[in-house]
Simulated scan of single mutants.
Amino acid sequence: MKELFYDRIASPIGEILVVVDGSYLCSLDFTDCEQRMMALLRRRYASLQLTHMADPYGYSSRIQAYFAGDYSSLDEIPVSTGGTTFQQQVWQALRTIPVGTITTYGTIAAQIGKPIAYRAVGATNALNPVGIVVPCHRVIGANASLTGYAGGLERKRWLLQHEGVLLQNKLMVQ
């Protein structure tokens, strides 16, 4: 049985669950999405046990610092996402999107050398196990529309506005 450590932290957009595997962040989700999070964890770890740990490796503090406006606080959090090689490429590419900017699924697909795989990029985005730290909220539709976000579109909108992305009229796409 795999022992993972978790913490619960308050945020302006709902309580967040932080889960670590060793010294790597392996899951970050909102408590109202806990069922989805547990399904992803069970898919990755056949048998697991969650044990509470306050502020594991300082990650809870770093995430709270992000919400307080220290956007670089997430940069050094090591992640362990699991997933296929393709999924890992997408999630690594997401971490290169600068704070305050947005991009499209097609741009990410081109960035990883698979320019026609924008739908697969979208599907991978939906399975991101460490939202916010791997900033899938910074990816929008080709027509500059906000598209799906596992935590809900209002949270996606809030995160983008928190990072300084103006959502009126046309969005500026990277």
Rank of each mutant, 00 (worst) to 15 (best):
V173C: 08
V173T: 08
A120D: 11
I116P: 02
L17W: 11
F86S: 00
T31E: 13
Q168M: 03
C33I: 00
H52C: 12
L4T: 07
Y57S: 12
E154T: 01
T107I: 14
T51Q: 14
P135E: 04
P135Q: 07
I77C: 15
L153Y: 06
P78M: 02
A10T: 11
I77G: 11
M38Y: 11
H52R: 10
L153H: 06
F86P: 00
Y45A: 05
S80M: 11
I9G: 06
D21R: 00
F86Y: 03
R8K: 07
G69W: 09
R157Y: 02
T124Y: 09
T101C: 12
L40F: 04
T31A: 03
I112Q: 15
I140H: 01
G106Q: 14
G141L: 06
R95H: 02
G83R: 01
V165W: 02
H52L: 13
D70R: 09
Y105P: 06
M38N: 08
T124S: 14
R36M: 07
I102P: 03
V134F: 12
T84V: 06
E3M: 14
T124H: 12
T107G: 07
G83P: 01
D32Q: 05
Q49F: 13
F30T: 03
V134S: 10
I116Y: 10
G83D: 06
L17V: 14
L40I: 07
S73R: 02
L28Q: 02
S60G: 14
P12C: 04
K170H: 07
P78G: 00
T147K: 09
D55T: 03
T124W: 08
K156I: 03
S11G: 01
C33L: 09
F30W: 08
G69P: 13
